[in-house]
Structure formats: structure tokens, C-alpha cells
Design a protein around this nucleic acid. Sequence first.
DNA 1: TATGAATGAGCATTCATTCAT
DNA 2: TATGAATGAATGCTCATTCAT
Lengths: 195, 195, 195, 195
Amino acid sequence: MGRRVTGRGGRRRDAAATRAEILEAACVLFTRDGYDHVGMRGVAGVVGVDAALVVRYFGSKEGLFAEAISAGFALGEDLLFSGRDGFGERLARYVLEKEEKEGFDPMLILLRSAPNERAAVLLREGLEGQFVRPLARWLGGEKAPERAGLIVAALFGLAFMRDVVRSDSLTQAETEDLVALVAPVLQSYVDGPET
Amino acid sequence: MGRRVTGRGGRRRDAAATRAEILEAACVLFTRDGYDHVGMRGVAGVVGVDAALVVRYFGSKEGLFAEAISAGFALGEDLLFSGRDGFGERLARYVLEKEEKEGFDPMLILLRSAPNERAAVLLREGLEGQFVRPLARWLGGEKAPERAGLIVAALFGLAFMRDVVRSDSLTQAETEDLVALVAPVLQSYVDGPET
Amino acid sequence: MGRRVTGRGGRRRDAAATRAEILEAACVLFTRDGYDHVGMRGVAGVVGVDAALVVRYFGSKEGLFAEAISAGFALGEDLLFSGRDGFGERLARYVLEKEEKEGFDPMLILLRSAPNERAAVLLREGLEGQFVRPLARWLGGEKAPERAGLIVAALFGLAFMRDVVRSDSLTQAETEDLVALVAPVLQSYVDGPET
Amino acid sequence: MGRRVTGRGGRRRDAAATRAEILEAACVLFTRDGYDHVGMRGVAGVVGVDAALVVRYFGSKEGLFAEAISAGFALGEDLLFSGRDGFGERLARYVLEKEEKEGFDPMLILLRSAPNERAAVLLREGLEGQFVRPLARWLGGEKAPERAGLIVAALFGLAFMRDVVRSDSLTQAETEDLVALVAPVLQSYVDGPET
DNA sequence: TATGAATGAGCATTCATTCAT
DNA sequence: TATGAATGAATGCTCATTCAT
């Protein structure tokens, strides 16, 4: 749909484009189904190529996954840091208003792929190295690592209940109500325990 | 060789007991590995019976899972309600100090099984009906469902980061430091938005 | 053919018999095609069962192969030792007149499977431990290991040229002529270098 | 990255030279791994070209193999014929002392590729036409084809046990001991059945 | 002439489940 | 009631080869 050029019978033969399409499809599928429920055949099928091509470009399912989440971490980095004021609200709004850009949502990938050991290793390292530790450094002050971890935990908890479990209590709520409740909590972690 | 020894010597001819053993083993395995990574063969193997027997007793993997988590929800219920004072700290301590009683931990089952659609349906219904809604009722006041949902979200976020992702920032922290940071947050949800 | 009981639709349901049939089929296929060109599906297909059943009974392709050749080594052992006189001729006749009992021939399995590293390990150990070393012990005298090795080498060379390469010079020859030429050579290895 | 360096710096635009390099690489790989375990990708990779180029130059894997072994047969021819005296010893030494010139050894190719039907056809024809029959003609006398076949069989048996199976009894032996035992046997085939 | 994108058939293995006993 | 034999679909991955450029 949209991108495909040759409706049928031998496709575009543009490696970079095909590779990108595969990666995009993988991002969407990993978001929706998590590591274990995504198959190479499935990813290939969405793009309309053979599964062997996916292996050729990404080496293995693990390699494909690694690239899919690295795109996610990159996306997340610039999202966080802007200024201490309003940080809590900004984060709360990110989680509560995120639109799953074209079906891709790094938080959901993480939440739904973590049960897999192979995926978990990549996830742990990426999250810790590109998210939690930088955040702790940026926060500074006492118990910075703990506060950073708790911020991330709060975010994932929220995403888990809303988007994975889809708890009525959160999906049916007004966004503004939730922001009003959550933002101060996140902000309290930013400002540190000297309240 | 031959008969597995289950601690009681040989396999008994007590159907109810065998059924209970199977369920117990399933709880442990679902906790450790999540729905997708638990096999009927694995469960059966722990108890020393054939996989077909597990199917016979529980109908299917899904049926086995349903019973395993219903045990979990039952367990959780009496845990929560005791009194409004110190509720935040009590919950925080539950998550941070929980010992995974004999390897069984309903939160981990939930976190690690949610990626599976079949499991997710059961989880959603159980969590909502037996946990979030009762909690909301108990909380009372304004925005009770939202506050209940956020409490559960906070709990799961914490468990996810500590026990699934195993983020250094939380696993290496002092429990008391985390309690000090998290308890007020949870308590704020209990006391409601009397800002 | 012959053995099958249920022409179609669910087979005999006799594990021992099915297992034996699978093993027999494997022996024939390994003989004809060698390790690499035998597939689990192929073996299963001959017997009329699913490939998964072969895995169930033998663990893996390697396990199946191990059992197939162990049958071969067992078969070979009692073949060798009878008495020093006429030993050369007896061996020559064995190689030249062997009928590939129902398509099973351990020498061919070895010749055709050795290129595969996994198979080679099993083959090396089996041949050395159950054939060459016992033979050397039985031969006794000077340079016994060398002489034993050369006897086995002569045998395999013969089998290779006749049954694998199928060289006209040997396939079209009179058996008696070949025996007359080869027997003294083998016997010379038995009698040792004090000629 | 990018261009492979092949010792001459970059890839040349000399088709004939590239072709020769590919063939050389193929000879080495076929020697080491045998027909089945050599991949077009592997051969191409050694030289630093694309697998498709190998197909282009040699038509198919089979074509590549055909040329590789024809080089081997050519190499073998001049090796054999020098004179009747000491022929047995010369051959024995060839097999036992051969250094696998730069990794290329026609006997090993043959031994390790024979399990493949496609390869076997080429091998059979080449060995028979360029080796066994010429040798028989050269030997002359009674039962010349049989004696020629047996000489070749003896050689292959030796190579098989030493280099493919790697039987301790022969790999650990002193070369001189083996020569002393084998040479007379080969010579007896040369001199014929003048028992 | 040569590259590399793309294919499709093949591999061994794992799984929940069904069915005969 | 309970066992375990048997199934078939699915998994990730490899391969020689073809075809557009």
C-alpha cells in the first residue's frame, strides 16, 4: 500500500528502499506483537518480499530487532531533555498522547518483547545506556539513579496499563485528568527528595 | 529412570492431588518464563506426568493459564485492603520486598504473559474485575477509577523495571531509599486530588 | 511395502515397531545417500510417519545417525575374528561379495558420511574403538596398529572404488580374480612384516 | 570495508585472472570441505567477488566443480608414470608425504565429494578415463584393469583413513614404517600375478 | 561485463494438540 | 482414567540460482 511500486512480479530492486521498508514493517510488527510473535515470514510478507531477504539484510531475527529498537531509542533521546520546568507534564503527555507514529512505539516494543531472553538483553542495555543513565546524569542531586529509574518505571507502568492491558480505568479517562494526577508525581522525582 | 520421583515417591493415583501439583508447577513456570515460553511438556515434566494429562485436566494451555492466574488474583485481593494510613508504604514494600513465594508471583506472570493475545484477554479481565475496580471502589472520592489505575500502573512499572528489565538503577538501590521515594506517590493517589 | 499395517489413516501405534522401522529406513538411506543427503522428512516419509516423530524417538539427526552406525559396528565385530588362516581371503570376500543386506551397508555409510564433520566424529570413534584397535590387539606382533590400519584402509579403498566410484575396472571384474589379487595382500598384513 | 583486498590491491578488471583466482579458491575449498559443504558464496567470498559472478563464469556449482577436478586429474597424470622400478614406493610416498600443495589435493576432493550424486558422475568419468584406464594400459599384462583398479583403491583407502577418518593408527605411525608395509603391496600389483 | 537484489525450495527442530489404546 | 504415539503447522535460517540493472 502506498510505497509499493510493482504491484506484482519482481519488485523495485532498490536495496536501500527495500531495507527501509522491511525495517519499518518490523517496527510496526514488533510494536503490535512483541519479539516472540513476530516471524521473519510475517515481516517479509508485509513488504512483499521473501523471508530470506530479511535475513540477508539483517543477519537474523535478533539483528532485525536490534535495529528496530535502536531506531526507537534514538527517537526517545531528544524527546526527554528540554528543561526542568514542566518536565513531569511533558513526559506524562508524551505517554498519554502518543499517537504510535504509523504503528511504531518503542515503549510497546519493550513492554511486549521483554519476556524473551534474547530481546531482553538488547532492551536492558539500550534502556539503561541510552535512557536511564543519561537521565540520571541530567537529573543530578541525591539518589539520581533511583529517581531516574522510578521515572522510567512510572512511564512504563502507565504505558503498560493503557496500551497493553488496556485497563478501562485509564483508557476511558480524560487525558487531562490523568496528566493532572501523574505530572506532579514525575516532577517530584525530578525535583528530588528535598521536598 | 522410568518414573519421575516427585518427592513423594512414585506417582500417586490421586487425581486431585496431581491436578494441584500441575497447577502449582504451572504457576512457577508462568512466573519465570511467561505464557509463551512455557510448554505443556515442561509443566508436565516437572510433575512427572505426560503432557496429554495436562491437556486432559485443563483443556488447553489457555485453560491451565486461566487457573494459574485466578489463583494469583485471589492471593492479591486480601493483600491490598487494610486501612488508608500507610497504604502507600505497604504497597511499595510489597513490590520491593516480595519474595516470589515459592517462585509464584502474579505480577510477573502478568508482565511476562501480556504479549500473548490469548493470555492478555484473561489478564485484562482478571486485573480489571478483581483488582482495579475493587480498588477504585475502596478508594472512593473523585477520579477514583483513574487513581486506582494509576496505583496499579505504578506498581507494575516498578516490578517491570526491577524484575523484568532488571534495570541497575533499581536493582542496586537500597530498598529503603526506594520506599521513601515511592510510598508518598502511592499515598498521594490514595488521598486523592485535594491539591 | 511388507511391514506397513494400516494402508492409510493413522498407523499401527506400536512405538517399538515404529522406532525399529524408522531406524531401518535410516540405515538404508544413510547407506545410499550419506549423512548430508538424508533428511528427517525423507526418513519419516519412507516409514509413513511425521518427521517430528523421528525427532521424538532419536532426539536429532545426529542421534539417529549414531544409532544407525552403531548397528553397523555391532554387525561388523563378529565378522572379523575367526582365525588367522584364510583371514585375508575372508575379508576380501566380505567386501567383494557383500550383498548390502536389505540396502544396509555400514562401510558405505562411513564412506559417504565422513565428509560431514558431525558424522565424522562418531565414525572416527566407532571405527577406531570398535574395529581398528581390537583388530590391532588381535593381530599382535610388530607394528600391529599400523597393520590393522592398513587392513581397514585396504577394505575401504576397495569398497570405495567398487561401490561409490563404481569403477568399471573393479565392477566388471570377476570376483575370483579380485580375491586372488587382494587376499594375499590382506594376509600379508596379518602375518606381519617378517616375510 | 567495501572492496576486498586480494593481495594485489582492489579488484582488477582482468576477467581471466579473476576466473583463475576463483578456480583456485574452489580447489582449496573443495579439498577441505567436499562438494556439499562448499558454497558459492564461500568461494566468491575468498576471492572477493559476488557469488553471481562465479555462476556467470562457471555456469553452476557443478560446472565449477568439473573444472576444479579436471585440474586435479591433469596434475595427477604426470605424477604417476616414470618407470616400473620403485613405482610402489613412489606411490606410497606420494600419498603419505603429500603436502596438499597450497591446500589443493585431488584425492581428498574425490573422497569428500563422492557422496554427492552430481559430483560422483564427474568423478567416476574423470578417474576412470584419466587415471585407471591409462594406468591399466601402462601396466599391461594379465588382469591389467583389475590391477590398476586395485592400485587406485589402495591409494584411496590409505588417504581416506589418514586424511578423512584420521585414524590414529595411521596418523601417528612413522611414515617409513607405512611405506615399508605398503610399497611392496603396490609393487605386487605392478608386477602382476606371476605367483 | 559484472553486480547484487531477490527468490523459492529446502533444512532440522519445536509446539500444542488429537486419538487410539 | 490416563498414557504416550502420532500429527501437522510453524519456527529461524541456508542455499544455489535468476534476473534486472
